[in-house]
Amino acid sequence: MSGFRSGRILILGVFALLVLGGFAVGNPTILSADNVSSMAVFAVELGIIAFGQGLVIEGGDGAIDLSVGAISGLAQILTALFITHGLPWPVGIGIGILSGAAMGGCNAAAIARFRIPPIIATLGTMFAFTGLALIASEGNTIDLTAAPARFLAAGQGSVLGVPFQILCVYLPLLGVLVLVQHRSRFGRALYLAGTNATAAWLAGIHVKRLRAATYVLSGALSGLAGVIAAARLGTATPDGVPEANLISIAIVVLGGASIFGGDGSPVGTAIATIAIAVVNYGLNYNDFNPTLQAGMMGLILVLVVLVENLVRGHLPRLIAAARNRRKMA
């Protein structure tokens, strides 16, 4: 069904609280205002990328975007290069977002026009964008501490005591996406296409155009996330947002979307982002190595899909079979 499942959101909320509680027992300082705020800003970048991934996956037929991390890296590097070469910072930010959209456009063209399976297409562009980011940056990180303060404020500033990117980027974005996915014609058409592409096409919906648009949006959002990460850290790295592919897919699936499309909601994605961010930050705070953090993300992803499949598919069938057997006997 389109829309989010309130049950799933409740479970995620409880899960996040439990994890947070667990970490807090071990190390109460995690709940300090500073820490909660840095957990939140960390979550923003992944959350934005997950929004884009969510749109792509909802488009259906195994659509997936494996290039989100690479796009965030190249967009970040381009933004940093433009700013360090003296262009005004708004132009730099614009470059980051637009280049992301353009890279998404490459994915869209490869998939919709040349009919390359999404996995292969985005794997190919992932290679290419990462390579280009390394070439453009000559393999180094680019220092942005000397960038205009207003640019850095995009990742470090705060408004009314709340980090800038949450109040002025993430929450408005969430609002817009809720509007787009649940209230707009585009969102409805996307759900329809993700549920049954043939029926949607025969009902006058431009399925290919819709899917292409999701890749462009995903690219633009990844670019935006890359820019914010660069501003937050004061450096741009060709790697972009670390583990973005894995974590964005994990967030989307955890948020209640079906990996087969036609399902999902930005609200679910947002709550799943919080849950993932709590886990990630908690591990980080307790000095877990990034490799371990990524491993935990992988574990969460596999377990969630596994449990979901068992609950949705196997168990009802097993129960039905048992019932039949009883009836027969």
């Binding site: 195994g62 897919i249 990996i259 574990l299 596999v302 596994l306």
Partner: peptide, 14 residues
Amino acid sequence: GRVPPIVCTLGTLS
């Protein structure tokens, strides 16, 4: 587990 191959192996990758 009927997990799509790409999802499963991205997970086991990490």
